[in-house]
């Protein structure tokens, strides 16, 4: 079992875990967490694929997936922020509507 394969399998496990909980949970904040864990699994798969040794045994990592994951992390956090903002706004609007319904 090589390191790349081990971490690749770990990435797959994280992805599947996140997917299952993103589909089953009903709470929005948790669903966002699950999607983030899914994304982390994908990143881990990419980085594990980039981790290779050359013939002399020195680590010879591929910088292109690293750059992709780096942009991916920043895009993931902005997508998370957007999702959180949408959830907060929906919550506030629902509260306003309830108030109007009551009064």
């Amino acid at each position: 079992m090589s390191t790349a394969l081990l971490f690749g399998l770990c990435g797959i496990v994280l992805f599947v875990l996140g997917l299952y909980f993103a589909l089953t949970t009903t709470e929005m904040l948790r669903r966002i967490l699950a999607i983030n864990i899914m994304g982390n699994g994908v990143f881990m798969l990419l980085i594990a694929a980039a981790y290779q040794h050359d013939v002399s045994g020195l680590p010879n990592t591929d910088p292109v997936p690293h750059a992709l994951v780096l942009t991916g992390i920043v895009v993931a956090v902005s997508a998370t922020a957007l999702a959180l903002k949408l959830v907060c706004r929906a919550h506030e609007l629902a509260a306003e509507q309830r108030e109007e319904g009551d009064g």
Binding site: T3, T61, I73, V74
Partner: peptide, 24 residues
């Protein structure tokens, strides 16, 4: 860091653990 990606480790520590946590 273990997988030879220190660039991403720095970004993850600052974003994944710091900013995402604050946002959540």
């Amino acid at each position: 860091a273990r997988l030879g990606a220190p660039d991403i480790a720095i970004a993850e520590a600052a974003i994944g653990a710091g900013l995402t946590g604050a946002l959540l």
